[in-house]
């Protein structure tokens, strides 16, 4: 890992939808995210910010252009390899928490770590407990995922995003569904991740107060980055 390599780098990304009507959503988007940067993407509804995020997340592969994650050309990688990249280098936090309701809070956090398989399950469990304590929800670890409150769920999702020490955390409106108190808690956690853990963050939000407090705001309009 070269520290000067941007964590995330896209060039001339274009994305069109053909269903129900032809729609050119992203137009020649260029973007770089450096290590430890806390970046927010804002813009009006339908400007393409979420579409961009899902391309950056490697889940959406139906685009043209170049995408480099930690220097690796993701636009040429196989689906298996992309799954591995997501597992190892990217953490996700969604608007709706998307925990697995069948599993306990602790297991939800552990799953990506167990999938990565770099540590024994005991070590993964230890790390997961550490993260849950750090985020103030250590006492909820053994509850089922659907038995904890909305703000706590989002913190579980953040712990899950952090379990494999990813290079970048991506969020699609992670505070969109939370009240102002929980939004504050989540923002503080993100801030700490960026400052203390030196992780990059790329958060899509339509909350101008949230965006203002980040290091850099990327504003999108009609499929282009305008600022």
């Amino acid at each position: 890992m070269n520290t000067t390599t941007p964590v995330l780098h896209v060039e001339k990304v274009n994305r069109s939808f053909h269903d129900p009507v032809d729609l050119h959503v992203l137009k020649d988007v260029d973007l770089r995210v450096e290590r430890g940067e806390f970046v927010s993407i804002t813009g009006k509804s339908g400007c393409g910010k979420s579409t961009l995020l899902y391309i950056l997340s490697t889940m959406d592969t139906d685009y043209s252009g170049e995408l480099y994650i930690d220097g690796e050309a993701a636009h040429q990688a196989s689906k298996e390899r992309l799954a591995r990249i997501r597992n190892e280098k990217i953490g996700f936090v969604f608007q709706f928490h998307y925990l697995l309701p069948e599993f306990s809070v602790l297991h939800n956090v552990m799953l990506p770590g167990l999938k990565l398989g770099m540590k024994s399950s005991g070590e993964v469990e230890h790390r997961a407990m550490e993260l849950l304590h750090e985020l103030g929800i250590g006492d909820q670890a053994l509850k089922k995922a659907n038995q904890v409150s909305g703000g706590q769920k989002q913190r579980v999702a953040i712990a899950r995003a952090l379990i494999n020490d990813p290079l970048i955390i991506m969020g699609d409106e992670p505070t969109g569904n939370l009240d102002s108190q929980n939004t504050g808690i989540v923002f503080d956690i993100f801030r700490r991740i960026a400052n203390e853990h030196r992780r990059s963050l790329l958060i899509v939000t339509h909350d101008p107060d949230f965006a203002k407090r980040t290091d850099r705001i990327i504003e999108m309009d009609d499929g282009r980055i305008v600022r």
């Binding site: 997340s57 889940m59 689906k79 298996e80 799954a83 591995r84 997501r86 597992n87 190892e88 996700f92 969604f94 998307y98 925990l99 697995l100 309701p101 069948e102 799953l111 990506p112 999938k115 990565l116 899950r160 494999n164």
Partner: peptide
């Protein structure tokens, strides 16, 4: 479907 989506988002591949 949600579970499948989240498994895939967190790094489980299609064949997993």
């Amino acid at each position: 479907l949600d579970t499948i989506a989240i498994l895939k988002a967190t790094g489980f591949s299609g064949s997993d």
